[in-house]
Nucleic acid binder design. Structure first.
Length: 485
DNA sequence: GCTCCAATAT
DNA sequence: AATATTGGAG
């Protein structure tokens, strides 16, 4: 076992230095090889630079990215590495994703686990104890054994089980699972998933095959033959082909109609449609809308369409507050519920504090709390604009403009970053930011300095949001052009 | 009985 | 939404 362990390399990711050090130390004491990263970005860089090196990731929930799973998905898709996560506080259920937090009588949170189509993900609770890491090798070995297709909904009873027992139980249940018999009350297993996942790689092979024979002659049997993937069935291909065709139909239809709605392009297939079409879409969008610039003054966030009156270029947006942003003069606003940008002003946008009263709200809204303070609401899944050049990428939660609405691979996501977008998400701070980030004081200086000397007299004193507002607009906040948060 | 496809189910 | 299954037509 020790021998096995010493062959396991773990990447630990945590923002908190103390945690990071503790976990790394704990793991190293147990003969694991350990690397650390302090945020998702570093982790990804490390992973890319050491392709194939890491067997498992240990990370915290906060690192996972804006929709709660971006980072994890990314890892599992791109690197096929299982993830252990800690520090969860609540239950989230999404398609194929299940997180459970089990509270014991002594109010301690216990085991958490989830189901994903790809990758075995295990949760442990922070603060971690050495015991939690006793059998990391088990996760790795199992993940590998099952080619990362473990479906593992395993609820530990509140009594601490020894890892040996746990392991036995787990294997027991797995056997039952295969036999399709019912799980025990204390230990449930979800039916093993065997669904094919059309990864980018697989899809690209699929496309290559179609290219070879031409779309007209592309039939399931032929594609299957050309793809030459073991275990892939004709039915798999047929199903995928059907979907791909329907996507193409949609594209064709939109083109004919010249409709501005880009729904069809939300499909992940869109990343592979001919560049010319994408260019066309981009152009269409650019012609329809100017790119909004996002601003903050104090705690007020809004966007502005650069109508010419004000030519500010300060960009600073706190993501947690974006939903509260309403600006009447802008044709774009953010709907708090859907996190979609709407063409019309969203009169019904309201403060997030009105939205969220409890964890139950989060659950029922199928939305995630973001950040350790449980203060913000983010992460709905449908964030792509129909008609605006400004979009939110579902995976990275980055704002970007242009037609690259669907970033299905890491490369595409990266390409959507700052150089193209006025706004991006800083995964550390979970703040949306532009090229530069400013403090309120800097903002004040900037605005007031721009404005005129009359206002700069008050710049010497700390400014309230109201002061900032007045300094910049010369009016009071009651004109309802926007709200203070 | 096999392939393809569209519709339907999960 | 994505993938699997079904059933009719050839």
């Amino acid at each position: 076992m020790d021998c096995e362990r010493s062959n396991i390399t773990i990447l630990v990711v945590d923002h908190d230095e103390e945690s990071l050090a503790f976990v790394a130390k704990t793991l190293m004491e147990r003969q694991y090889k350990v690397e650390t990263a302090k945020n998702a970005h570093d982790a990804l860089v490390t992973l890319r630079n050491n392709e194939g090196l890491f067997d498992i990731i240990v990370t915290e929930f906060h690192v996972l990215g804006m929709d709660g799973f971006g980072f994890q998905r990314h890892i599992q898709d791109q690197f096929q590495i299982p993830v252990i996560i800690w520090h969860l506080k609540f239950l989230i259920i999404r398609p194929r994703e299940l997180i459970l937090v089990v509270m014991s009588k002594d109010n301690r949170q216990h085991l958490i686990s989830m189901t994903l189509e790809k990758g075995a993900t295990h949760f442990i609770v922070k603060p971690v104890c050495a015991e939690d890491f006793k059998d990391i090798s088990m996760y790795v070995v199992e993940a590998k054994k099952h080619k990362l297709f473990i479906d593992n909904l395993f609820v530990q009873s509140e009594e601490q089980e020894s890892s040996e027992q746990a392991k036995t139980k787990k294997e027991d249940s797995k056997r039952k699972n295969i036999d399709e018999s019912q799980g025990e009350a204390k230990c449930k297993l979800v039916k093993k998933s065997s669904r094919l996942v059309w990864t980018d790689d697989l899809h690209n092979l699929f496309l290559d095959a179609i290219k070879k024979v031409g779309l007209k002659k592309a039939v399931p049997g032929k594609i299957l033959e050309l793809m030459n993937i073991p275990n892939l069935t004709r039915d798999n291909v047929a199903s995928h082909l059907q979907k791909y065709r329907s996507f193409l139909d949609k594209v064709a239809e939109k083109e004919l109609v010249g409709n501005a709605s880009q729904r069809a392009f939300r499909s992940r297939f869109a990343s592979n449609i001919p560049t010319s079409i994408i260019e066309e879409i981009k152009e269409m969008r650019t012609n329809i809308f100017e790119v909004p610039t996002l601003y903050q003054i104090g705690n007020c966030y809004f966007n502005h369409m650069n109508h010419g009156e004000k030519n500010w270029n300060c960009k600073y947006l706190n993501c947690s507050n974006i939903g509260s942003c309403v600006l009447n003069e802008s044709p774009l606003s953010v709907n708090q519920n859907s996190m979609q940008m709407n063409e019309n002003n969203d009169a019904s946008a309201f403060l997030k504090s009105d939205l969220i009263n409890s964890i139950q709200d989060v659950q029922s809204l199928d939305q995630l709390y973001k950040g350790g303070d449980d203060t913000s609401l983010v992460g709905n899944t449908s964030c792509v604009l129909n008609e605006s050049p400004l979009s939110v990428n579902q995976t990275s939660m980055q704002f970007y403009k242009g037609g690259d609405v669907i970033a299905s691979s890491s490369a595409e996501i990266n390409s959507c970053m700052l150089n193209e977008s006025p706004i991006s998400l800083d995964q550390n701070s979970n703040q949306l930011q532009g090229y530069e980030q400013y403090s309120n004081e800097e903002l004040y200086d900037m605005f007031v300095g721009d404005k005129m000397s009359e206002a700069s007299t008050s710049a010497t004193n700390p400014k309230s949001d109201m002061d900032l507002f007045e300094a910049v607009f010369g009016t009071t906040s009651q004109n309802n052009n926007f709200k203070f948060i």
